[in-house]
Simulated assay, not measured.
Amino acid sequence: MHVLSREHGRAVLAYATRLAGDQTAGESVVRETRLGAWRDPQGVGETSSPQRGWLSRTARNLSAHRPM
């Protein structure tokens, strides 16, 4: 988990913040995304590119299903 946060944390937070519309909502999306990665580590993958894709896709899906 620490490696994911270190390598992709800023990019995923910036993306989630843009999607969610504000910093607080973006941080919430990132927390939910990290929880999903923790629950299903095999789904995330082992190399950097698929990891970022998985994290970004999950953040997008979570943002789309958040109440406004």
Rank of each mutant, 00 (worst) to 15 (best):
T33M: 10
S28V: 06
N61S: 11
A59E: 00
V44K: 07
P50D: 09
R60L: 07
G43F: 13
L35R: 15
Q51I: 03
V44P: 11
R60C: 00
G45I: 09
T47R: 11
W38F: 14
Q51M: 09
W38I: 09
P50N: 09
L35S: 15
V29K: 15
T47P: 05
W54E: 03
L35E: 12
P50F: 11
T33F: 02
T58K: 15
T33A: 03
V30M: 11
N61P: 00
L62Q: 13
R57W: 02
G45T: 03
S49H: 03
S48T: 08
A59Y: 08
A37E: 02
R31P: 07
G43S: 12
V30C: 11
E32S: 15
S49N: 05
G36W: 12
T47V: 12
R52Q: 01
S49I: 04
G45K: 15
P50R: 07
S49K: 05
S56Y: 07
T33E: 01
L55A: 06
P50V: 07
V30I: 06
D40S: 09
L62I: 13
R57N: 02
R31Q: 15
R34E: 11
R39H: 04
P41T: 05
A37M: 08
R39Y: 08
R31T: 11
D40A: 14
W54R: 03
A59D: 00
G53D: 00
Q42L: 14
A59M: 02
A37S: 01
E46W: 12
G45M: 06
Q51R: 15
R39T: 09
S56E: 05
R57G: 00
V30P: 08
V44N: 06
S49Y: 01
V44D: 09
G45P: 14
S28A: 14
V29A: 14
R57K: 13
R31W: 13
W38V: 10
S49G: 08
G36M: 12
Q42E: 14
R57P: 00
W38Q: 13
E46T: 05
E46H: 09
L62N: 13
P41K: 03
S48I: 05
S56D: 00
L55R: 12
R39A: 10
S56H: 10
V30Y: 02
P41S: 04
R39I: 05
V29D: 06
D40T: 07
V44Q: 12
Q42I: 13
N61G: 08
A59H: 07
T33N: 05
W38S: 09
T47H: 09
T58Y: 14
Q42K: 14
W38E: 11
R34C: 11
W54M: 03
